[in-house]
């Protein structure tokens, strides 16, 4: 039976991570609990962040919002400050799973989970967020674009935890998040995309269509909506590397990725025109 630790401070938490055997950070537990029930999780020590004051805070700063790791996904969706500051992020958080999962899952656990299908990373990628990683060695900043290093692997070291996410203000322009599932409507996404158009650049974050969430940008100077779609599809092409599974084969997932990006780009272009 694994031991559950409930540290009162961040220092205590990172100390535990560096000393106990085979530790695992416990955030909202929505991913962990499932693995425990299925009997395939063998952590010896859980370090639960729930009791540490301050980790549930959303702190506005100069042009950035710092989100504590234990802020729930639901709050990222509903909090007025997040919605005003980075509406695209709020929208991506809004579309995660279902209200029960969103109420329990944490913003830190969500990115630390590192799954290639997660929705919020697509928005964090285009917004160029920064992940704060803390350990006994101190706190370092990891650009989110360097955070997802491989299939279910993040830049977080074993003795580190996500202690915050810094989200820059969404620049003027248009941002859209679109996700598509391939089976039940409420299933995990089979393709998702965040598109952010600022000035002459189109930023695209892709979910579920490669072993990691992917980010690309392309020049959108002088393009009409069809031109933008073509440019976006050309830009994402080298990034598409879907893993075939029960939710679809490679060809279908590529197709769905393109349809998803196209929808997001068109919607963003419409917004720009109406702005």
């Amino acid at each position: 039976m694994p031991t559950l630790h409930r540290p009162d401070t961040l220092d205590e938490a990172v100390e535990l991570l560096s000393t106990v055997d085979n530790p695992m950070v416990y955030g909202g537990g929505t991913a962990i609990q499932i693995l425990i029930k299925q009997g395939i999780l063998f952590a010896d020590n859980f370090v639960d962040l729930a009791g540490i004051p301050g980790l549930r805070e959303i702190t506005p700063g100069a042009g950035v919002l710092t989100v504590g790791p234990m802020v729930s996904v639901r709050r990222m969706e509903t909090d007025q400050r997040v919605r005003a500051h980075a509406p695209l992020a709020a929208e991506a958080y809004h579309q995660v799973a279902n209200p029960r999962v969103r109420n329990t899952a944490s913003a830190g656990g969500n990115i630390a989970h590192g799954d290639y299908r997660l929705d919020p990373p697509t928005a964090l990628l285009v917004l160029d967020a920064t992940v704060l990683a803390s350990s006994v060695r101190g706190t370092r900043e990891i650009p989110v674009r360097e955070f997802f290093v491989d299939f279910q692997e993040t830049a977080i070291e074993h003795d580190e935890l996500v202690s915050g996410i810094r989200i820059p203000a969404q620049p003027p322009g248009a941002g859209r998040f679109v996700k598509n599932s391939s089976l039940g409507e409420n299933d995990w996404p089979c393709a998702s995309a965040s598109v952010l158009v600022t000035g002459s650049t189109m930023h695209i974050g892709l979910g579920a269509v490669a072993p990691t969430p992917r980010y690309v940008a392309c020049d959108a100077t002088g393009l009409d909506d069809q031109g933008a779609v073509d440019a976006a599809l050309a830009a994402i092409e080298p990034e598409l590397d879907p893993i075939p599974d029960v939710r679809g084969g490679v060809a279908y997932k590529r197709r769905l990725a393109r349809a998803t990006v196209e929808d997001a780009v068109r919607a963003a272009w419409k917004d720009l025109q109406h702005a």
Binding site: E185, D187, W188, V246
Partner: peptide, 22 residues
């Protein structure tokens, strides 16, 4: 979904049921 006798989607994470949205 079975692959060589193994049920590969026998959990509610993967098995699909209609939800209110379907």
């Amino acid at each position: 979904v079975l692959d060589q006798g193994q049920l590969v989607n026998g959990t509610l994470l993967d098995y699909q049921l209609p939800s209110i949205r379907d």
